[in-house]
Design a protein around this nucleic acid. Structure first.
Lengths: 350, 350
DNA sequence: ATCGGGACTGAGAGCGCTCTCATATCGTGC
DNA sequence: GCACGATATGAGAGCGCTCTCAGTCCCGAT
């Protein structure tokens, strides 16, 4: 069942024999055909299709030292990866861009401490040409591993050390989290809300911290009322819980800026359970503008970020890093961190 | 930036030299050490760690003809893949099982017709040892491609031709869709509902057809009132639309069996918009018991299937197919399709 | 006719590993 | 003390490809 139905796969040698040329020439044609007479190219191509020749990637990468594959590492607790469409969307963007460049996508989830070992080893083993890593938490050992292995890496979301000045300057794609949060809170202020709470993500991630900073900036105070701040951990259940805490600690709140749509859904559920009308009594603004925003009841005012495009940009950045030769090509990205725009989308919740 | 920081990676040769043995012996030790004296093994292992030796997978798979990687092919429109946690969950199960077997997971999405070519070529090129394919629609060309290439493949969801008698007998993992649907509808009947509608998935997928069949069986009629049947396409928006159609065509319905939780959420939204109280006026039962069931308002009565376990089983089946040697091992699955159990979970919606 | 040089093409040396087969080494039983 | 099988180890031949380097060929210039 595992055996080939048509005998062994044809090799370069076979194609060469059939086309009446040398292996080297076939190789040249297969790889673009530079410097081979058109007539000969034609003959070789003919032989290739007749024989159904497909290059053996193992042999090829043995000599080229390139695998044509990159790893996508997701080091996020299950709860978030699969309930929040965020990752899926980003993955889709990455997948599209990589497919266009004929590059394979190796997906790896990090769950346990033991996985770090396995994945670290894998990344160092030269199985992949580069890596894409997602929303790492503080002190994640993966970046150091990649660094040590000399593996070209692009991060999704600004890594914690990027601004700290220490360590190498990483390449990453992020949205303007701070700006987005500012827009959200200013909007609430503009609607006359005065007791605006915030449900944050886990504060060991820069995106969560940045959004909280944006909230602070919009309020114009570095030290907002701590009763108005709760951590929702970027999950729906967390949002629900955080909203409960907030209502208990600050019953007079008249708005809440929730740092992800998923958490906002949780918050809405709590508000409904507590009988607070949205937006009349409590205005709610989310963040992401993915499916959960559309499902929300009432439809969620939220901050849109083009998640798929972010994935695309990550992939493009990495591909560029892997093949500096393409630098001059049209549409080539610059080798620098990318910050994409965030834009408030006003709907009915706030 | 792409270069190794520590010079070239050490090879078997280097380890052999350091340990004072031959390449062959090192190879043996690295691959388990069968037939090598303990003392020598120790010496080799020592050299391996000292040098930080990692086998070159390209070289290895050049001779073994195995890549240690399998492809996971998802041929589903974006709308479903990323809004429904179903795939993510299954992927997680697959990923876990593969990681345990040190096998890599190559993720590929099929979106356009052109992708079929690319992926077909890829699968035939021997880059992967096997493939896992998801919920194919009728007439999908991928299975034939895999078959032609002699690529071991396991399907998620019973393929359409599996029961048709033609074609090879495929290996797949599916739940008891028909049984699950029967339980759901019987439950509604038991609660005194008499005008039970159904919102189906796309009927070119066996899972959708099977659930519809279960509905028919429970009702005890092969030809239910067509006004009570609508296709929701397995998406939230589709569920919303289908519910609208149903209410228009059969305003007297008193229950609806919705073939996925995601669609059920859509249906609930429509019901709320139309002012129908759930479950008092219309009872709603979903299918899947994933996140959307928990988010639903009111909490959804639904049919639970262990999606992650299904993913795990798929992976296990494929691994087994790839390595018949392991047949006798403990916990080894039998090489046959697996049907997992579906069980009704009663909550508040119906 | 001869030559320099550009354009093509082929020979051959590996890439790093596995695996077969031959060789070496070591007890045993007689 | 010797033959013998069993057990360990090494030598070497590839796996299929790329890439360098050395031709070969053909052209116009001399």
């Amino acid at each position: 069942m595992v055996s080939e139905p048509n005998g062994p796969r044809p090799t370069l040698e076979a194609v060469a024999a059939r086309a009446g040329v040398s292996r080297a020439t076939v190789s040249r044609v297969v790889n673009g055909g530079a410097g081979v007479r058109a007539a000969v190219q034609e003959r070789v191509r003919q032989a290739v299709t007749e024989l159904g020749y497909v290059p053996n990637s193992a042999a090829r990468s043995l000599v080229t030292r390139r695998t044509g594959a990159v790893a996508v590492v997701i080091a996020e607790p299950e709860t978030r990866v699969f309930s929040d469409p965020f990752f899926g969307r980003q993955l889709r963007g990455i997948s599209r861009e990589l497919a266009a460049a004929d590059t394979q996508l190796l997906l790896m989830f990090v769950e346990h401490r033991a996985d770090y070992d396995r994945i670290g080893r894998y990344l160092s083993a030269g199985h992949v040409d580069g890596a894409l890593m997602f929303s790492l938490h503080r002190d994640d050992p993966l970046p150091a591993m990649a660094e040590r292995a000399g593996l070209p890496t692009v991060y999704g979301g600004r890594p914690g050390w990027a601004s700290a000045g220490r360590g190498p300057r990483p390449l990453y794609v992020d949205t303007d989290n701070r700006g987005g949060a500012r827009q959200a809170v200013r909007h609430l202020l503009g609607r006359g809300r005065r007791r605006i709470a915030v449900i944050t993500g886990p504060l060991d991630q820069t995106s969560a911290v940045d959004r909280l900073d944006g909230y602070r900036e919009a309020l114009g105070t570095a030290e907002p009322d701590p009763r108005l701040i709760a951590d929702g951990g970027f999950t729906a259940a967390g949002g629900e819980r955080a909203m409960t805490e907030l209502l208990d600690a600050a019953p007079d709140l008249d708005a809440v800026f929730v740092c992800s749509d998923l958490m906002a859904n949780g918050a809405l559920r709590t508000l409904r359970a507590r009988g607070r009308r949205v937006p009349e009594e409590v205005a709610v603004v989310g963040y992401d503008d993915l499916e959960p925003a559309a499902w929300a009841d009432p439809p969620l005012t939220t901050v849109r970020q083009d998640v798929e495009e972010m994935g695309r940009l990550m992939a493009r950045l990495l591909l560029r890093l892997l093949d500096p030769g393409k630098a001059a090509e049209a549409g080539a990205v610059e080798l620098a961190p990318v910050i994409t725009e965030a834009r408030l989308v006003v709907r009915e919740s706030g």
